[in-house]
């Protein structure tokens, strides 16, 4: 067996170190090669897979017409699941799978399993082809005068360089400023619909809030009272994406610092709900630690201490909204945020 100088099917190779020695491996015959019974059995096996595949297609059609799409069924391990999807998936999946399994079984058991050798051709083009290509190129260069006509060449390069510019310009109107082109993106990002006297209402129920409604340790997801009208007028959720806030209440003695003097109301603090990292809404407020955790990237803010970042990738504190009460005793904003809410951007400064 230590014959290191054998031959290959196509002759010529001498075993060298660093090259695989060319040797014959005895070809082991399969059962189906030697036993005609086994071959017939394999034949039946393959055919029955194909037949079963057909049967399953029929089953699929029957299931499609007979199963109601809202029927549920209890299957151990799976629990209570929709019957339709499972049966359609099983029948179509198995019918397709069986075609594949049959074809492969056919190839493995009944088609020849002798490996054949094919010599590969060199990828590099023959020298005359290379020479011809070079000659063609030279002729083209000469005939066009590309090398001679300096002005043509340079002006063509210039024209080609400018030609995509209209295409880029055409992208400009992907967005146009709502107020006749006067507001730039950074100006829009810097403002929300909060303004002095805007009532704070509970998100989803739009109910105004009195200070005594919010106990210590309480949390309310809130929006401006005009949210619904603005939303309807603008036809999108843009205003909501910026104005959403959370209201929390803590014992005033627990407040270490705020972003502005007296921005709380008797221990009620309002903070933006939009994370200053990349803009996920946050309301994972832990009332014991006063920490606010972002579920997306785990930035953590200390709401008792100006909303400062205590952990995670966010670089800026949560913007605080100054609040007070109106004449009827409902909570209102005293102003808009004094900084852009949400993620940083270039012009933010």
């Amino acid at each position: 067996m230590t014959d290191l100088n054998p031959h290959d099917g196509h002759g010529s190779q001498q075993a060298k170190l660093g090259h695989s020695p060319v040797a014959d491996v005895p070809h082991v015959l399969r059962v189906t090669d030697t036993d005609p019974k086994a071959a017939r059995r394999a034949e039946r096996q393959v055919a029955s897979m194909f037949v079963l595949s057909m049967v399953l297609v029929v089953a699929f059609v029957v299931a499609y017409w007979t199963i109601d799409k809202s029927t549920n069924v209890y299957i151990p391990v799976f629990g209570e699941v929709g019957l339709m999807t499972i049966v359609l998936g099983l029948t179509s999946g198995l019918s397709i799978l069986l075609i594949g399994a049959g074809a492969i079984q056919w190839a493995k058991k009944l088609m020849p399993d002798v490996e054949v050798v094919q010599m590969s051709h060199e990828l590099v083009s023959p020298e005359d082809a290379t020479a011809e290509a070079a000659a063609n190129y030279e002729r083209g260069k000469e005939e066009s005068g590309f090398a001679r006509f300096k002005i043509i060449r340079r002006s063509l390069i210039g024209a080609m360089a400018l030609f995509p510019i209209p295409l880029v310009f055409l992208l400009r109107d992907l967005w146009s400023s709502p107020v006749s082109g006067t507001l730039t993106p950074d100006e829009i990002l810097s403002k929300t619909i909060w303004k002095k006297g805007e009532r704070i209402v509970v998100d989803a129920t739009y109910q105004p809030i009195k200070p005594e409604d919010l106990p210590v340790g309480g949390l309310v997801s809130a929006v401006p009272a005009s949210m619904n009208e603005v939303q309807e007028a603008e036809g999108n959720l843009n205003a909501r994406g910026k104005a959403a806030i959370i209201l929390i209440r803590m014992d005033p003695s627990e407040i270490v610092s705020q972003q502005g003097d007296g921005w709380d109301y008797q221990g009620i603090l309002a903070y933006s709900k939009i994370c200053t990292h990349v803009g996920c809404p946050i309301a994972l407020y832990e009332q014991r630690t006063h920490h606010l955790l972002c579920p997306c990237h785990q930035s953590t803010f200390d709401l008792a201490n100006s909303g400062n970042v205590v952990f995670g990738p966010a670089a800026r504190n949560m913007p605080q909204l100054p609040i007070g009460v109106d004449s009827e005793g409902y909570l209102v904003a005293m102003d808009d945020f004094n900084q852009p809410i949400g993620p940083s951007f270039w012009e933010r400064g």
């Binding site: 129920t205 005594e212 409604d213 340790g217 309480g218 949390l219 309310v220």
Partner: peptide, 17 residues
Amino acid sequence: GPQSMPVFSDATLPIKD
């Protein structure tokens, strides 16, 4: 509002809700 959980009072989140 047990442990870390904040309180959702009946005033801001009425019993119906």
